[in-house]
Computed example of a mutant assay.
Amino acid sequence: MADNHIRSAPCHTERTAGGTTVVELRGEIDILTAPAVAARLDAVTAGPCPDLVLDLRPVSFIDCAGLGLLCRARNRTVARGGRLRLVTDSACFRRILRGTLLSGVFEVYAHLSEARVPEETGTVPGGRRAPTG
């Protein structure tokens, strides 16, 4: 059966701001795209004390595979003594977090400024817009 649905392939941009890595994810984060996104987040959370902000405002869809990769990124960050914040203005996504009992697990903010991201100091190597799917 042919799939006539046009997918919004996820991509990301990445930058550093005063020691904080800000990753903006866009598109759909689902079972097909999650492995590539997870690989990037694994790289970002590999060092000691990662300070990571995931800007999810441009994400159009996330399924359980996407939630799993967010949990993995959080667990890796916490295990290395770091901090992870999510930025989303989606009431639907917040409802999903509440329904899965994850709302208390993540620091969630509606605006990037609320996540206390310092001024931009440079771009992470390879942090230009790149497809992840």
Score class of each variant (00 low, 15 high):
C71P: 02
R72I: 00
A73M: 00
A73Q: 00
A73W: 00
N75Y: 06
R76P: 09
T77D: 09
V78P: 04
V78W: 04
V78Q: 10
A79C: 02
A79V: 07
R80G: 01
R80H: 06
R80Q: 09
R83M: 03
L84Y: 00
L84M: 06
L84E: 03
R85F: 04
R85I: 01
L86H: 02
V87T: 04
D89H: 15
A91T: 12
C92S: 14
C92H: 13
C92L: 13
C92F: 13
F93P: 07
F93E: 02
R94I: 06
I96E: 12
L97M: 09
G99D: 07
G99P: 07
T100G: 07
L101A: 15
L102N: 02
L102A: 09
L102G: 04
S103H: 12
S103Q: 12
V105E: 08
F106Q: 04
F106P: 04
E107S: 14
E107T: 11
V108S: 09
Y109A: 08
A110N: 10
L112Q: 07
L112Y: 00
L112F: 01
E114T: 02
A115Q: 04
A115S: 06
R116C: 11
V117L: 02
V117A: 08
V117D: 08
P118D: 04
P118C: 03
P118T: 08
E119H: 11
E119T: 13
E119P: 09
E120A: 15
P125H: 08
G126M: 07
G126H: 04
